[in-house]
Write a protein that binds this DNA or RNA. Structure first.
Lengths: 174, 174
DNA sequence: TAAATAGTTTAGTGATTTTGTCAAGTATTA
DNA sequence: TAATACTTGACAAAATCACTAAACTATTTA
């Protein structure tokens, strides 16, 4: 339940690839396609939306590609998903485009709006920068994994590194 | 994005109606259908699932209907949704039935699993009892509304009443 | 014991959304 | 000016959703 569409997922992963080139190296659709295993045609659609939303810019011609308009730290996952999928609306009664006549007397209205707000708050907290840090620790883990059993829990080293708030560190996940 | 299916929504609303009859008065599908504006046939499907899951019982014959198997306080919204829609799986890679080969190296995996855990934790906190209390305060609000402008924020009276943890009170929602 | 009440079970189906592909075109730069 | 890259819009297969239909089974009360 509460499945996120592939469009949103691919969008976040594409933005992550573009963030890797920040601040100056443009990332091409082809690169993103290969690294994230998403078709070029579909990515064009997705990145087009994000460009029109002002989150990224495109540079044409050889050596061209996509660039972040702001630093990774200032681009939240929530802002990406909002452009690709619209605002979080757990139920149709919470969708600005739909609404519901029963709202006033409905006991579940508050429940869903409350959940939606929690989700949005979380997604607005996590940024592309957190994903970049996450990638770094993943690489560490991969090289150090041979003589360790993975617990699903992050290592102590990670907690030390991502000491800031908002990061996807162990304390937040477990 | 992240839309909950009507099946889950109707299920929660149906359970709320059944909870109103707790502990002894059985609620018929017809009653639920009329009060919650959901078709009888669709409710049959939904309640059947919940009955098989052991959350409710059915009593056949005249005077029959559906009953909660446990007190409203012990039935969480999360437990209802889990039966109707399966576990929270924001992405297919988190679905036990699907999985993903890229998991180990995927920077977004932790992000989605973390979000899913937060959602589940929230839904497991809210119970049918909270909805019953919510209904009571809604009734209060409705009668007291004539000389007040609704702000979308709950009144102070509500905050005082639902002082326990886990309730859908103002502090949790805003 | 029969009639009324109420729940059970299994299929099926139209509408909508998702998840893309395809093709032709436009823009930029080495 | 060739190579590279982005743009746009149409289109369609596949999946899911949101139910409906119909025949059935079980229980209780008159």
């Amino acid at each position: 339940m509460l499945r996120l569409s592939t469009k949103g997922q691919y969008g976040v992963r594409a933005m992550f690839e573009i963030a890797k080139g920040y601040p100056s190296r443009p990332t091409t659709i082809k690169e993103i396609s290969e690294r994230q295993e998403v078709s070029v045609a579909y990515l064009e659609q997705i990145l087009n939306t994000l460009r029109r939303a002002g989150i990224i810019s495109s540079v044409k011609g050889p050596g061209g590609g996509y660039l972040l308009n702001r630093p990774p730290k200032e681009i939240s996952i929530g802002s990406i998903l909002k452009e690709l999928e619209g605002p979080v609306a757990i139920t149709s009664c919470l969708d600005p485009k739909e609404g519901c006549s029963r709202v006033d007397g409905c006991v579940t209205y508050l429940l869903w709006s409350s959940l939606g707000e929690k989700i949005e708050a979380f997604l607005n907290t996590i940024t592309l920068d957190d994903l970049l840090k996450e990638e770094a620790t993943l690489k560490q883990t991969r090289t150090a994994r041979s003589n360790k059993i993975r617990t699903g829990r992050k290592t102590t080293a990670v907690q030390t590194k991502n000491k800031g708030k908002g990061a996807l560190d162990a304390a937040e996940v477990r």
